[in-house]
Design a protein around this nucleic acid. Sequence first.
DNA 1: ACATTTTTATACTAATTGTATAAAAATGTA
DNA 2: TACATTTTTATACAATTAGTATAAAAATGT
Lengths: 298, 298
Amino acid sequence: MNQKQLDILGHTHQLFMEKGYVDTSVQDILKRSGISKGTFYKYFSSKSELLLSLLSSLQESLILQREKVAIEYKGDNQKVFEEQIIFMLSFAEQNKIPEMIESTLVLNEVKTFQYIEELKAATFNWIYERFQEIFPSKTSPYLFDGAVLLEGMLNNIFKMNKALNYPLPIEQIVRYCMKRIEEIVIEVAEQKEQLFNPSVYSAVFNEKTESHFSTELTRVTAKLKRVIENKLTNEEEQKKSLEFVTFISDELLQNDTEPRTFIIQSSLLSLEKINTLAQTKELEEYKEVITILTRHAS
Amino acid sequence: MNQKQLDILGHTHQLFMEKGYVDTSVQDILKRSGISKGTFYKYFSSKSELLLSLLSSLQESLILQREKVAIEYKGDNQKVFEEQIIFMLSFAEQNKIPEMIESTLVLNEVKTFQYIEELKAATFNWIYERFQEIFPSKTSPYLFDGAVLLEGMLNNIFKMNKALNYPLPIEQIVRYCMKRIEEIVIEVAEQKEQLFNPSVYSAVFNEKTESHFSTELTRVTAKLKRVIENKLTNEEEQKKSLEFVTFISDELLQNDTEPRTFIIQSSLLSLEKINTLAQTKELEEYKEVITILTRHAS
DNA sequence: ACATTTTTATACTAATTGTATAAAAATGTA
DNA sequence: TACATTTTTATACAATTAGTATAAAAATGT
């Protein structure tokens, strides 16, 4: 993400918040950003990629700030958690994240839906993990259910609060819900009443995490390929690079055998030796994703 | 709704369930229904009207069958309620109602959003009313909160259940949630912990109900007008009918003074005296909406 | 001063919704 | 049956919009 891209992203965020994704034409974005069509399509391959980039950057910022909250509000872990939830809800509302996410439905692309699912799963997973830190270990088998319930309660109370023109402050909602969840968790632990079996979940979730990085992989691969095709004038080098990139993708995405991580690593090194690619952000991003994927596989 | 319209609606429902609203072009609908463009636009003014008609007819069918459930499962009122909820959830899932509703986001029309909000509000309101029948009157001030929580819990558990490939049967989910809600309602009633003040809500909801029928009004008015313009060949009669219809709309939609219900009723009678209109479904539908609106106003 | 990259301006393609219209088919009626 | 009316079809067309292509202009680097 260079400055120009961030700039476009900023203007687009404005426009999307004002009129929504559907009613914002690419033309509008060009006008607002003061650029021409050519420039736009140089930095973003499509209007939908732009939306995903936007969501991605918002998510990044949300996670960063959420961890900051944990550092600043030192004290009772549950209190910290509440503060974090409050922050997340405020952030989502201010940046109209729910609306942005709804917009992605227009795209009707399976990959996009997966990515959104993964964003949501990440949030849920975070809550679930935090629950395990906060609540006594006795209740552990019921915390998955608890996390599902908390999310549901918060979502629906928020919708109602919005429909009623915000009579309740976020803080009150969060505290109310946490109390209810505490009571529920204690009760169901006593009654041994379990809804979801967390072990089933963890299988699915890990699969999800992988598929998250799979879509990440296709994203960064596409970007890198574009760089290769545009910047590498030497035909020999271009061919070579593309061969490496294609190999790595194939290796990681096939499901039959384990990916051969050493060959992948050496391919990465070879890619880094190509001067024109060496310091591009695209390659850096690419390396990150590959690293995570291979670490996961090993 | 004549047979032809119902036929188109059926084929469209199929297509929307298969590929979604966005990816179904009008061309697809024509092909599947075996009709031409002209015919389509004779019966539906636009693709989006079609979607709304579909949702509307699904909602109608849902309400009808939900009341049937209440008649069939005579017994403990709470048990009946659970059965009704189970039916509603199954029905919604089978007919992909959530997906249809999500589709309406594409349209980006304020009126459509309002209509969807009203559909949701109607469901919520029904739950709230049923709660007042089921739970002891002591708990009454906390049942609004309870209804919000139940909806939220069910929604989120359903999403998770879907994501995990349906490990839980609907019945179990509903029973689990109702138990939790019971416990919560008792607890918050004891602690006198209220979130939403139901009186604030009733104001907003009544407003909503009105606006619901306002949009209904514009819908049936448009339909009736089309009939008048197409079927009434006598120019004099046509002019007269349109005058009545326009008058009634104006009278009901203006906010300054109370609508003059007697004049409206007599206009309705005059409309009924026009032979060509007398037994049309459009006029019947129109009368229904007008009746509700004037009853409300008086 | 020259080469390279970025940016602009603009024309064009393709998809899609909705309108218009004349011809053909179906239906109703004397 | 013959004629009139309504419904339906087929097709051309307008308007909007995403995305491509390209040549000229501007900015940047060496």
